[in-house]
């Protein structure tokens, strides 16, 4: 009987995808949306496009899972909480999943 392999590859793929998208896009987005924010009509017009919404959904979802996965390990190793393995995994991935649904809802009903 072969040992069961872990599901870690799925979460690692989400972590990696999120890490890549966050590294590529987040600094620029923070600059233009928070430090030099466009006016209301401009921004609404730009977000209200199905391709932009899809891209934002992908970026937000993967960024959330990037956080969930990396922070989970920070808690295990940085604070030596690996005895709370299941609880921490549930909070981190559960939180990322819940927020992903919320992001989907916000984008679906936008504006």
């Amino acid at each position: 009987m072969r040992p069961k392999r872990s599901r870690e590859p799925f979460f690692w793929a989400m972590f990696s995808g999120g890490g890549m998208l966050a590294a590529l896009f987040l600094p620029a987005l923070v600059l233009v949306l928070w430090f030099a924010p466009p006016s209301y009509p401009e921004l609404v017009g730009k977000v209200d496009h199905s391709l932009v919404k899809l891209a934002l959904f992908g970026l937000i979802m993967l960024s959330l899972f990037h956080w969930g996965h990396r922070f989970r390990y920070t808690l295990y190793d940085g604070l030596q909480l690996s005895h709370l393995y299941g609880l921490i995994a549930t909070i981190c991935y559960g939180g990322a999943t819940a927020l992903t649904f919320l992001a989907g809802y916000l984008l679906w009903t936008f504006p």
Binding site: P3, R5, S6, P9, Y73
Partner: peptide, 15 residues
């Protein structure tokens, strides 16, 4: 080897 390496205590514990 993958059966050993692909566990949490294999590669996945590495950060």
């Amino acid at each position: 080897r993958g059966d050993v390496l692909s566990q949490h205590a294999g590669i996945w514990a590495c950060t």
